[in-house]
Simulated assay, not measured.
Amino acid sequence: MTYTGEVTPGGTPDTRELQHLIITKVAVDPQMSNNAYVLRCRATDEQVLIDAAAEPETIARILGDGRTTKVITTHQHWDHHRALADVVSSTGAVTVAGEPDADAITEQTEVTVDDRVEHGDLIEFGDVRLEVIRITGHTPGSICLLYDDPDGTPHLFTGDSLFPGGVGNTFGDGDAFVSLINDVEERIFKRLPDETWFYPGHGNDSQLGVERPQLAEWRERGW
Results as ranks from 00 to 15, higher is better:
residue 1 M to W: 10
residue 5 G to Q: 02
residue 5 G to D: 02
residue 6 E to A: 14
residue 7 V to Q: 00
residue 8 T to L: 13
residue 12 T to E: 15
residue 14 D to N: 12
residue 16 R to N: 13
residue 19 Q to L: 13
residue 19 Q to R: 15
residue 19 Q to I: 11
residue 21 L to Y: 06
residue 21 L to W: 05
residue 23 I to R: 05
residue 25 K to V: 11
residue 26 V to P: 00
residue 27 A to V: 09
residue 27 A to K: 02
residue 28 V to E: 10
residue 29 D to Y: 10
residue 31 Q to C: 10
residue 32 M to E: 13
residue 34 N to R: 12
residue 36 A to F: 01
residue 37 Y to L: 06
residue 37 Y to I: 03
residue 38 V to H: 12
residue 39 L to D: 00
residue 41 C to T: 07
residue 42 R to E: 04
residue 46 E to C: 07
residue 47 Q to E: 14
residue 48 V to M: 08
residue 48 V to Y: 02
residue 50 I to T: 14
residue 53 A to H: 06
residue 55 E to W: 06
residue 56 P to C: 10
residue 57 E to K: 11
residue 59 I to K: 03
residue 60 A to I: 06
residue 60 A to L: 05
residue 60 A to R: 11
residue 60 A to H: 08
residue 62 I to R: 14
residue 64 G to E: 09
residue 66 G to D: 06
residue 66 G to N: 09
residue 67 R to K: 15
residue 70 K to P: 05
residue 73 T to P: 04
residue 75 H to L: 14
residue 77 H to C: 07
residue 80 H to Y: 13
residue 81 H to N: 15
residue 86 D to V: 03
residue 86 D to I: 03
residue 87 V to A: 02
residue 89 S to V: 08
residue 89 S to P: 11
residue 90 S to R: 15
residue 90 S to Q: 15
residue 90 S to T: 15
residue 91 T to C: 02
residue 92 G to S: 13
residue 93 A to K: 07
residue 93 A to Y: 05
residue 99 E to D: 14
residue 101 D to A: 04
residue 103 D to H: 09
residue 104 A to P: 00
residue 109 T to V: 06
residue 110 E to Y: 10
residue 115 D to M: 12
residue 118 E to F: 10
residue 120 G to R: 13
residue 122 L to H: 14
residue 123 I to Q: 03
residue 126 G to V: 00
residue 129 R to A: 09
residue 130 L to H: 02
residue 131 E to M: 09
residue 131 E to Q: 14
residue 133 I to K: 02
residue 133 I to W: 00
residue 134 R to K: 11
residue 134 R to W: 04
residue 135 I to P: 00
residue 135 I to Y: 00
residue 138 H to I: 02
residue 138 H to V: 05
residue 139 T to W: 02
residue 140 P to S: 12
residue 144 C to D: 00
residue 145 L to M: 06
residue 149 D to E: 01
residue 151 D to I: 01
residue 152 G to E: 05
residue 152 G to Q: 04
residue 152 G to Y: 03
residue 154 P to A: 07
residue 157 F to R: 03
residue 158 T to P: 01
residue 159 G to I: 08
residue 160 D to K: 09
residue 163 F to W: 07
residue 163 F to G: 05
residue 164 P to V: 02
residue 165 G to V: 08
residue 165 G to M: 06
residue 166 G to W: 01
residue 167 V to H: 01
residue 168 G to N: 08
residue 168 G to S: 13
residue 169 N to I: 07
residue 170 T to C: 15
residue 172 G to P: 13
residue 175 D to A: 14
residue 176 A to G: 14
residue 178 V to T: 10
residue 179 S to N: 14
residue 181 I to S: 06
residue 182 N to V: 09
residue 183 D to M: 07
residue 185 E to V: 14
residue 186 E to K: 08
residue 187 R to E: 05
residue 187 R to W: 01
residue 188 I to Y: 05
residue 190 K to N: 15
residue 191 R to G: 05
residue 193 P to I: 09
residue 194 D to V: 01
residue 194 D to C: 01
residue 201 G to L: 10
residue 201 G to I: 13
residue 204 N to P: 13
residue 204 N to C: 07
residue 204 N to E: 13
residue 205 D to L: 09
residue 205 D to S: 11
residue 206 S to I: 01
residue 207 Q to I: 03
residue 208 L to N: 03
residue 212 R to M: 06
residue 213 P to E: 04
residue 214 Q to T: 13
residue 215 L to T: 05
residue 221 R to E: 11
residue 222 G to H: 11
residue 222 G to M: 10
residue 223 W to H: 11
